[in-house]
Computed example of a mutant assay.
Amino acid sequence: MNKGSDRLIAYFGYGSLVNLATLATPYRHAVPARLKGWRRHWQSRPGDGWPERALLSVHRDNACEIHGMLVFDGASSLPSLDERERHYDRVPLTPQDISLACNKAPEMLQSLGHADFFVYVGRAQQAGKPPLLQSYLHTVMDGFLASHGEEGLSAFMRTTAGFDREILEDLHAPHYPRMTPMAEARRRRFDRMLREAGVRFAGDPAADAE
């Protein structure tokens, strides 16, 4: 499919997709946005050769609005996107679900056909409470800080349920293949924020007491 005939699609990213450095496809346009009526949460995921770890997903919550990234791409990228999000299903959205700054994105949204605008939602979770992945979380948090500033980073922590679990500290041998580089001081800050949200690190007094 050539670029001229490539149908336009758009999706709302609420985790690693907020960090544009992790995108593997040559997207057309991306703009920080908010999704109304949804909340993020951590859940279990099927095993796929990686150590068991938590998966970030969303569920409907009319009282919540979450920060994220609205990404426009060509339909030819769908196979790659679906492979990346293979533990997720595409759920259709409408332009009315999105809040964003005034730019060309609203007009682009209105031009989309049915099911061409969506969010990836994790499939039904399995039993258990697997750990979070430090390399993934640092990349996600860095994306929110870059795209939404301090307010957006704080909102990510506040509007995500399920931080009360252990973390797999893998920065020296990252399991997340798209971990982005950043200063050590920023990593330490992110870890402090995670502890404040209830995440348990190895060696923490609260973790040792369990």
Rank of each mutant, 00 (worst) to 15 (best):
H41N: 13
M69S: 06
W38H: 11
S44Y: 01
A30Q: 03
E85I: 06
I66F: 00
A33W: 00
G74R: 11
Y88P: 07
P79L: 06
L78N: 12
Y88K: 07
R39M: 10
A63T: 15
R90F: 03
P51N: 07
A30R: 01
Y88T: 13
S57P: 13
W42V: 06
W50G: 09
T25R: 04
E83P: 00
R39Y: 04
L70R: 01
N62I: 09
E52H: 11
T25M: 08
D82H: 05
G68R: 00
P46I: 04
C64Q: 15
A33C: 07
W50K: 13
K36A: 14
I66E: 01
R28L: 14
W50Q: 14
W42Q: 06
E52F: 00
D48K: 02
H67E: 12
V71D: 01
R90L: 07
V58Q: 03
P26Y: 00
E65F: 01
R40P: 13
A75T: 10
L70T: 01
G49K: 03
G49F: 05
P46D: 09
P46R: 09
L81R: 01
R28P: 08
R60A: 14
S44C: 10
K36D: 12
S44Q: 06
G68P: 01
L55G: 05
W50M: 12
E52R: 10
L56R: 02
D73L: 05
T25A: 05
D89W: 00
M69R: 03
S77D: 13
R39Q: 15
M69K: 02
A75C: 09
R53F: 01
L70H: 02
H41Y: 13
G47D: 08
R60C: 12
C64W: 03
R45S: 14
E85D: 07
L81H: 03
R39W: 07
G47N: 05
C64L: 10
R86V: 05
L81E: 03
H41A: 07
D61S: 13
T25E: 10
S44G: 15
R28W: 04
A75K: 13
M69T: 02
R39N: 05
R84G: 05
V31L: 03
L56C: 08
G74Q: 10
S76F: 12
R84D: 05
R90A: 11
S44W: 02
L78I: 15
R60I: 10
L35K: 03
H87N: 15
F72W: 06
F72N: 11
C64T: 15
V31S: 08
L81V: 06
G49V: 04
E65S: 14
